[in-house]
Amino acid sequence: MNTVTKNSRQTAPSLVYALPTDMGIFRVVNKVEEILLSLTLMTMILLACSQIFLRTFLSTGLLWADPLLRYLVLWSGLLGAVAATGQGKHIALDVLSRSVPKAFAPWINFSTLVFCSLTSMGLSWAGILFIQGELEYELIGPLSLPVWFWSAIFPVAFCLITVKYLILCFLQLRRIFQMKHLQG
């Protein structure tokens, strides 16, 4: 099957893919993410365009602009991925889930969410190890900030993704027991 990049497909209400948008705390999170992402994007556009302007009209340029731009791309992408986690918008293959019997579906979804939590935990751990290694060297990146600072987005983003998946796990489990309760 093809990928699910949009939430165009109807999903059974018993399956949790995204954080509920009607809850106050998640609405705030969404808004914060939206503002952060828009600001990074605006910064990238303006930074790149001012480089062109400086070069063309004043034949000069900012040496730190290009490396900064490349790190901003990384930051915006990883923050975008954090947002995509909450909105259930990650690219995924979806071959078998429709042929899964309805009764198992919530449990299977729960186990994929557990898998997602574990893997993002693994990535967070790898990220922390990576930053520990980077701390040994005093390499300086753009804006006179150390390189480890710019790379710290990896563990930060993966930790946030882990938290979101853990919440999704919890929500899915709660949904399963609510359903049991209704049936019983």
Binding site: S38, M42, G77, A81, A83, I91
Partner: peptide
């Protein structure tokens, strides 16, 4: 803007 960055984030990871 945020929608585009979510799309990009999905590809980047």
């Amino acid at each position: 803007m945020s929608k585009s960055m979510v799309l990009f984030g999905g590809i980047l990871v």
